[in-house]
Design a protein around this nucleic acid. Sequence first.
RNA 1: GGCGGUAUGCCCGAGUGGCCAAUGGGAGCGGACUGUAAAUCCGUCGGCUUAGCCUACCGUGGUUCGAAUCCACGUGCCGCCA
Length: 426
Amino acid sequence: MTDIVDELRWRGVLAQTTDEEALRKALADGPLTLYCGFDPTAQSLHVGHLTQILALRRFQLAGHRPIALVGGATGLIGDPKPSAERVLNDVETVQSWVTALRGQLAAFLDFDTPGPTQAVMANNYEWTEGLSALALLRDYGKHFSVNQMLARETVKSRLDGEGMSYTEFSYVILQSLDFLELYRAYGCTLQIGGSDQWGNITAGLDLIRRIAGNQPHGSAHALTQNLLTKADGTKFGKTEGGAVWLDPELTTPYAFYQFWLNADDRDVARYLRTFSFRTREEIEELERATEERPQARAAQRALAEELTTLVHGADQCAAVIAASRALFGQGELADLDERTLAAALSELPRAQVTELAPVADLLAAVELVPSKSAARRTIKEGGAYVNNAKVESEDAVPTAADLIHGRWLVLRRGKRNLGAVELTAG
RNA sequence: GGCGGUAUGCCCGAGUGGCCAAUGGGAGCGGACUGUAAAUCCGUCGGCUUAGCCUACCGUGGUUCGAAUCCACGUGCCGCCA
């Protein structure tokens, strides 16, 4: 079995660990139980979470037992951000998000095969809902030093800035409690997370050391992964439409595929190393291909295909690849047979209309532009296309002759923003 | 608590009674180039029933023919003093 620490290191994702020798030994000594927490802050996970999710998967494949924890409790409190206080979400909302995230996480790990590596789903709401304020303060609060808490980067930056509520200040206690709880219940001795979680994780280690006195499951460890950055300095995982979600309702599989396909040459190698389950040899081969023939985008294609398959399934992936080929191909859209075209268009943002309206209205209806003014502007700038033909006039109205197979119009804004309009009987 | 300053479009920031939908920079968007890249250059950048109209310069009220610009009160932030 590959040494997972070595693997994470060559992949370049390893940020920090506690005593590395001790961790390696614990990993070598047999199935180790580890966890990573995901707070319900939205109705879906996004590509940024993939780093952690896939790391759990790597650990499972390497013979360890992953616990995916959804923070039904911590999500109600809010992990403090360095910049500003979070707005609390209401309980029902958070509950529904918990359900959504559990469903998503279930797809990435093996929860079904009995055995020492069978994954576990946890929710910290279970052990916190009945926790009384007195118990929290007496049993756990005593083990936290306010001096240490105040020394944390996030807290410091908040105290220099707009301040911080007691609610968020207490967040670390709950997360520490999670680690302790999982340590006791499952012998979980490793918590992983993004490098920004280092403080929260080590706080848990301290709590285990103090409370689980003789540490029946041995000492616990922390491992953090680098947060992904982009060569152009913008935040990873964001596009013009916002975050790239795993939920197909929020980010279509087509958009998901396109997100990876459009990865910057300078970033794609790190993305592959971070997310791909290909062998080291294959990845290095793809990296070479990027250097030698960047225009072929072999690495981007491989990455997009692998992740789209992983997140949305092989069928969906095949469909979006076919759609991408059809829509970005050289051929005439009208030459595509109706089934292929309909399938490709079904991947795009689309709108149904009962009569042919001006192109500007259609662009806005499909939400390729935020407003009708923006649509006119785009046309004026020469950036609007109907069926791959540039729209010349701001007042242009498609005619029945423009309809492909009698009912479709393919709209485009710029080079790669596509949308579909379907004319339906009134 | 007192005194003073400040609040402008996604962000930073000019404007200080009409020529202001508001200079400039950044982000975003489009075009050229290309590989559905990057860099660069050019253009664009509140909305609409678009030669016009509407909404906007922290909020409310006021002065004025006319206010982002002046006044009053309120609110937030920043200083100095106590």
